[in-house]
Nucleic acid binder design. Structure first.
Length: 419
RNA sequence: GGAGAGGUGGCCGAGUGGUUGAAGGCGCACGCUUGGAAAGCGUGUAAAGGAGCAAUCCUUUCAUGGGUUCGAAUCCCAUUCUCUCCGCCA
């Protein structure tokens, strides 16, 4: 959410900054509403002042006048509230302004590769897809999931279930012990207010699973990512500056409707309604966002380095970035069966965009109150990492070599094969 | 599901109709003290919004919404959340 006070300072600059996003926003109306709002506030305050003075004076001859003011005040105040709501509606649907580093572009084709790392494996046979490998091992069962639940779900069994758990634990341990994130096991359900804080609502309601919850006054949703619940841990708070940066990590299931991706990645477990993801979140002083984004991204790539998986890092163009992000790096891992890189992590700085939605502030050294900067990044998407391990570590006979760093998490298992 | 208690500043906690934005404490910041630290002492310390180049000024806010009143943290009603006890389930 943008601060109207900041926007006001230079309206045309704000308009220009968002051009990169190529949106349809009625800036004229926004400006008009802001002016109306301020005008009404002033009217309101003048009346309030008069009323207050009368009350203080305790002059009975003025009490009648005070009553009149009350009814005038009601009208002005109602009007102002209406305008304010309208204003906030518009504001809450405007995405974050892209950082100057962000390349201009329309969609994913305009993203720019920054670096490549690791060795792309060469096979002297035709590498299989993860779902072929998994089904052959009898450890991925999509048909069964269809039967019990529906499409875009999967059963992971036996040693692949163990592998999935090992990946999650390995990532968590690395982020906690080496990268100094605080481990959290959070609720997997978030209220509408929380969803608003990180920007899932109001604009992206269709992507969310809403849950029926008897008697609750607010709406509840399954989290689409732990970012939502971790970031909102500081909602409505003035955090102590000395507690910053706050770095949090959690491994949670994520739930997404994947509306609008019909027919995309229908095979296998690339795109599921439910998947595990290890998520990192940082709450920082606003000036530290860029620095923290680099740090967070390297925490993510470090996992791939340790797993010895080939990957590349790209910077998303303005048109491909998420709603709340000012700058995003995607990490893409090599998938032999597709002969290309696929997203396995996305690390974003949201500047103060979410901070303002959540009303999370801190005081700087001059005791001035500022909104916090927030960042989030996958470290990594566990399901997709499982896919990457399967495909990159596959052998001619369909068995899978277990990456060295994972073996201690898997009873020293060195290879997974059908038996 | 039944009964009760309660939501006040970053935190704890006083306050039951009129300068109460709100005592006191903790925390925090600065200063004094000290070889240094701790303790002690002193001073300061809410947020949001609006006006102004600025100094500064104004308005709002004691869970939320309504009501009574010239005037509400304080009285009334509704809603909501939290806690305790009982029941039920794990």
């Amino acid at each position: 959410m943008h601060n109207i006070k900041e926007i006001r300072k230079d309206f045309s600059f704000f308009e220009k900054s968002l051009e990169k996003r190529s949106l349809n926003i009625d800036f004229k109306n926004l400006q008009k509403l802001d002016e109306q709002n301020r005008d009404l506030i002033q009217q309101k305050e003048t009346l309030e002042k008069e009323k207050k003075d009368i009350s203080k004076s305790k002059d009975e001859s003025l009490f009648k006048r005070s009553k009149e003011i009350s009814s005038d005040l009601e009208k002005v105040s109602d009007n102002q509230k209406k305008i304010k709501v309208e204003l906030e509606n518009i504001l809450s649907n405007i995405p974050n302004i892209p950082h100057p580093d962000v390349p201009n572009g329309k969609d994913e084709n305009d993203n720019i590769e920054i670096s490549k790392s690791g060795k792309i494996p060469h096979f002297d046979f035709n590498p299989k897809s993860h779902y072929e490998l998994g089904e052959k091992l009898k450890m991925l069962d999509f048909d069964l999931a269809t039967k019990t639940t529906g499409s875009r779900f999967v059963f992971v069994k036996n040693q692949l279930a163990l592998l999935e758990r090992a990946l999650s634990n390995f990532m968590l341990d690395t982020h906690v012990n080496q990268n100094h994130y605080q481990e959290i096991s959070p609720p997997l359900i978030a209220s509408d207010n929380t969803m608003f804080g990180t920007g899932q609502l109001p604009k992206f309601e269709n992507d969310q699973f809403e849950i029926k919850f008897d008697g609750a006054s607010d709406r509840k949703f399954l989290i689409p990512t732990a970012e939502v619940i971790l970031t909102n841990m500081v909602k409505d708070k003035i955090v102590d500056r000395k507690d910053l940066p706050i770095r949090l990590v959690a491994s949670t299931p994520c739930f997404r409707k994947e509306a609008g991706s019909y027919g995309k990645d229908t095979k296998g477990m690339i795109r599921q309604h439910q998947f595990y993801k290890v998520e990192m979140v940082s709450i920082v002083e606003k000036e530290k966002c860029s620095e923290e984004l680099e740090r967070m991204t390297s925490c993510a790539t470090d996992i791939l380095d340790k797993l010895e998986l080939p990957y590349r890092k790209i910077i998303l163009c303005s048109g491909d970035m998420g709603f709340s992000a000012e700058k995003t790096y995607d990490i893409e891992v090599w998938l032999p069966s597709e002969n290309k890189y696929r997203e396995i992590s996305s690390c974003s700085s949201c500047s103060t965009f979410q901070g303002q939605r959540m009303k999370t502030r801190y005081k700087n050294e001059n005791k001035e109150t500022h909104y916090v900067g927030t960042l989030n990044g996958s470290g990594l998407a566990v399901g997709r990492t499982l896919i990457a391990v399967l495909e990159n570590y596959q052998q001619k006979d369909g068995s899978i070599i277990v990456p060295k760093v994972l073996r201690s998490y898997m009873n020293n298992l060195e290879s997974i094969s059908f038996n």
